[in-house]
């Protein structure tokens, strides 16, 4: 039982990171109908921003760690806006394939600029929060790093929920996702709302990057590739374009992966996890919470 709870806890904290990344994929898909493949590298930049911010003002307290998290989120929000402005906006009226290929290009650009600037060798990620472990009755062990993931992720999700459902820009995001032409006809400035969406998604990816690195303690310029791919799959399984779906898909993938990893089939973790997800898509092609969209001619 303790082992089950422990694994569930580990799975949830990994899944929370996938969820944070998956939200960015799904929100951008919602407003622009394309997959921003550079998103996984924004996650990586988020981790490096945390690394360098910590060097500049080392964190030795809860507040210091949170300040670094916020700084990294702000930096990546800006990065996301700049990427959209320079790489995607000029192609807004072109076919989606052009934008998709550009996204892959931006992804490679970020990865290899990262290698150039930071070096290809992994760097140890610092402890941003005071390190302690709590032992619960029955032997359940929780570290402050896991706690950070398990407390901060729900807070970030709640903040996102509020923004999307209650604010003017959040409502505009949903309006654009339903019908971009109708949205411009009522006076919504598409460019501004799209920038806002990129800022939001990139900030969450940065948070994911930091929380992930806290638990894996090593960062490198290609670290975003695999988690990014998994988060993308999580977003599809949840129903691409659907925000709660992305969170659900991320958590689900994290939990499945952790449990398989803890079993005797651990060498085939990714294969089994992905096979399960394919199975879900076979029965629900639009994803768990997604609705089938009829392609309009």
């Amino acid at each position: 039982m303790t082992e089950f709870l422990q694994q569930l806890l580990n799975g949830l904290s990994l899944g929370a990171v996938y969820a944070l990344i998956a939200l960015g994929y799904t929100m951008v898909y919602g407003v622009l109908r394309f997959i921003n493949f550079a998103h996984s590298d924004v996650f990586m930049v988020g981790a490096f921003a945390g690394y360098y911010l910590n060097r500049w003002m080392p964190s030795d307290s809860m507040a210091g760690g949170l300040a670094i998290l916020a700084g990294s989120m702000a930096f990546c929000a800006l990065l996301g806006v700049v990427i959209e402005r320079l790489a995607y906006r000029p192609l807004r009226r072109r076919s989606r394939l052009n934008v998709l290929i550009t996204a892959i290009g931006v992804s490679l650009l970020l990865e290899y600029t990262g290698q150039f600037l930071f070096g290809a060798a992994p760097k140890p990620f610092p402890q941003l929060f005071p390190v302690r472990t709590f032992q619960f009755a029955g032997g359940l062990i929780v570290s402050t790093n896991q706690l950070a993931v398990l407390v901060l992720t729900p807070l970030l999700l709640a903040a996102l929920h509020f923004i999307v459902l209650k604010t003017r820009f959040g409502t505009a995001m949903r309006a654009i996702s339903f019908h971009p032409v109708a949205a411009t006809l009522v006076g919504i400035n598409l460019d501004r709302v799209i920038s806002f969406t990129f800022a939001l998604g990139s900030a969450l990816a940065a948070a994911g990057g930091i929380l992930y690195s806290l638990n894996y303690q090593s960062i490198d310029p290609l670290m975003g590739v695999l988690p990014g791919l998994k988060a993308f799959v999580a977003a599809v399984v949840g129903g691409i374009g659907n925000i709660p779906g992305a969170a659900l898909g991320g958590l689900l993938l994290g939990i499945i992966e952790t449990f398989v990893n803890g079993s005797r089939w651990s060498t085939a973790t990714d294969a089994i996890a992905f096979a399960l997800l394919i199975l879900i898509l076979l029965f629900r092609p639009a994803g768990l919470l997604g609705k089938l969209e009829v392609e309009k001619v």
């Binding site: 409502t171 505009a172 309006a175 032409v181 109708a182 006809l185 009522v186 400035n189």
Partner: peptide, 30 residues
């Protein structure tokens, strides 16, 4: 729209996923 020209498009194109009030508020986005 900001200059003062507003269109009710063919097929209405209301935001079917938003509430009535949210639709109206989007009309006042600016």
């Amino acid at each position: 729209v900001a200059l003062g020209i507003s269109q009710v498009p063919e097929g209405r194109l209301i935001f079917a996923n938003l509430t009535v009030l949210e639709n109206l508020r989007m009309g006042a986005f600016r």
